[in-house]
Amino acid sequence: MSATLLLLFTSFIMSALLSYALVPFVKNLAKKTGLFGVDVHKSWRPLIPKIGGITIFIGVTVSVLITSFLFNMLDNRVLAFIISTELAAIVGLWEDFRELNPVLKPVLLALVGLPIVFMGAYYPYPNLPFVGKRALTILYPILVPIAFTVVTNAVNSMDVLNGSMTFTSLVATSTIFLITLIKGNILPAYLCAGLIGSLMVFAYYNKYPAKLFPGNVGSLYVGASLISVAIIGSVEIALLVAILPQITNEFHIIYSMRGLRSAKNLSERPVFVENDMLTANPSKKAPLTLVRMLTSKCSLSESEVVKMLVIISIFSAILALITEFFFIK
């Protein structure tokens, strides 16, 4: 018990400290490469370094590597987690430098899941609601790349406001951490502990008013980490329920835009900004998003919208706990 607690604590602290130490380096790197994003929801439109997600992915990866060596936890599942998530970070970094084709991106993100399949880091007997554990030995490896595309894009679609992706992902990661810990599944819990540590530090810099943006490198890395942990820990259904707000947001956007298209080609935006307040765009041509739904009743400030997104994520987390412990045999 004490060894488990020490492992979780070491993973959490190490990733948090590493991420914290990396912040100045990432800010300098953004300056040198000119990777800044305009914070469009503020009237003064500040330029913010947009590759802050590097602090999360290096922090978690190094922490996982060190702690797995120290605690003798390094196996094919840990290596598959590291390789898959690194590949997702590379895709994200590529998109931060140069926008990817909207059809190529989901294909690349599906390929990112292949190390999990080829290294056998999955358990093809998922526990399904009402029907229990079922053997899906042929179908499961086919579903892994699809799940990677859906989850990484869903988390990516939530990165629209200061702290929106970071705080909602923190809620989802904490839920998976809690479920795996209660089930006594230590490996995924320890991977989650590392991710929580980095996300907590990053949240400090990404909260309103943001000093760092996660960028695609951050959001795709976090999405890949979440789905990798869920597959390794056999808590796929709980994760899908925990990130229902992100998934609905993603499909609303795809459906309203009639397919996979770049957001830059939109004729109308989902919300408009006036005096630092967000209001839903009432035009029928504007795509449907969670933020547009939240601001449809009245105008809200950016931090108010993020607070509401976090409340919705907590609600989804409760539904995930109910699903895992009451509907899955």
């Binding site: 408009f272 839903a280 035009s283 998003t289």
Partner: peptide, 19 residues
């Protein structure tokens, strides 16, 4: 339904918010 209640349905404005 909410937008109709607030009498904003069908209006159109341009801006550059990505949310």
């Amino acid at each position: 339904r909410i937008l109709r209640r607030s009498n904003r349905y069908g209006m159109s404005r341009q801006n550059d918010s990505p949310s």
